[in-house]
């Protein structure tokens, strides 16, 4: 008898049947997953060890990876990516929490109006948002220069996207406006779900606003915060359209990101192997970040 059951306490015949139906259900998804995620990933890793260009395909071991670390343009792009993540993650998180806490307890109409406003850039779509910002930042025909000059903030028109000190901030501003929609929605629902009786009790006790926040609200919104941090991190790492459409990574690589540099190498310079090595490296970095963040979710939150 015993030999006929497995660790789940199910007989082998039944287990086979479960396996069959399960894999049938999984099959459609697995085909797409294997064909368009796993296999290309394998190919990407494989070819990253090759001198792979338009006309050559030659095994060169780790050379692509080693070259990356002595390529100042790549290092600059890596640094820029890092800056984008480090600036946008906290600013998005804090700002969206601030907005949400101001509006979550107002009447439904107010809440949904503000929520709609901040979600607007997401539904407008990346490209429409980017092209209108390009116009706003335009040195000659842009409204930003007009307003700032009229107000006396700046003396003369600035080429916002053509200045190595301002270009990255332009990118960050646009990224910011397109990134906070989802976090605000999440925070509103998370704040609204806090147990009211606890808040009332705190008020009766005469607890200060700050204390109420840290002791009661913060623990309940922690899971949301961690989720917001994870998605904002991943989005920031993948910042591409803004750069391709606005600055082509310039001036002097001040806005080049790993994603953009990868695209440029693959499609402007025909260096496929090198680009794939970059992709693998980026995947590893994002993977490490995600593991760290998933770990902290697990240790902080019960799901």
């Amino acid at each position: 008898m015993e030999s006929k059951t497995n660790k789940y306490g199910v007989s082998h015949a039944i287990q086979r049947q479960i396996d069959r139906t399960s894999y049938l259900f999984l099959l459609p998804m697995l085909i797409f997953f294997l064909g368009f995620v796993i296999i290309p990933m394998g190919m990407g890793i494989f070819t990253s060890f090759f001198d792979y260009t338009m006309s050559s395909f030659r095994f060169i071991g780790l050379k692509n990876y080693l070259d990356l670390f002595s390529d100042p343009k790549f290092l600059r792009s890596f640094w820029n990516t890092f800056v984008i993540v480090v600036v946008s993650v906290p600013s998005v998180t804090i700002f969206s929490l601030w907005v949400a806490s101001l509006i979550y307890d107002k009447n439904a109409w107010v809440t949904s109006t503000f929520r709609g406003v901040f979600y607007l850039p997401v539904v407008t779509g990346t490209v429409p948002v980017v092209v209108v910002w390009k116009w706003i930042f335009d040195k000659y025909a842009g409204i930003l220069n007009y307003v700032l000059v009229s107000l006396g903030v700046i003396e003369k028109n600035i080429a916002w996207l053509g200045n190595k000190d301002t270009a990255i901030w332009c990118i960050l501003v646009i990224l910011f406006t397109t990134s906070i929609g989802q976090p605000i929605v999440l925070y509103i629902s998370s704040l609204a779900n806090i147990d009211n009786s606890m808040l009332e009790a705190a008020e009766v006790d005469g607890a200060s606003n700050l204390r109420t926040f840290w002791q009661i609200k913060w623990p309940s919104i922690l899971p949301t915060t961690l989720y917001v941090v994870v998605i904002t991190t991943i989005n920031s790492f993948q910042c591409f359209a803004l750069i391709q459409l606005l600055t082509s990574g310039g001036p002097v690589y001040s806005t080049s990101t790993i994603m953009y540099y990868l695209y440029d190498n693959a499609f402007s310079l025909y260096r496929y192997g090198y680009a794939n090595a970059m992709g693998v490296l980026l995947a590893i970095v994002i993977g490490l970040f995600s593991i760290l963040q998933f770990k902290s979710i697990k240790s902080n939150v019960e799901y």
Binding site: A159, G162, P251
Partner: peptide
């Protein structure tokens, strides 16, 4: 360009 007689078209 520094004297602003001409423009450095860094983003165009």
């Amino acid at each position: 360009a520094d004297k602003e007689y001409i423009d450095a078209g860094l983003s165009i």
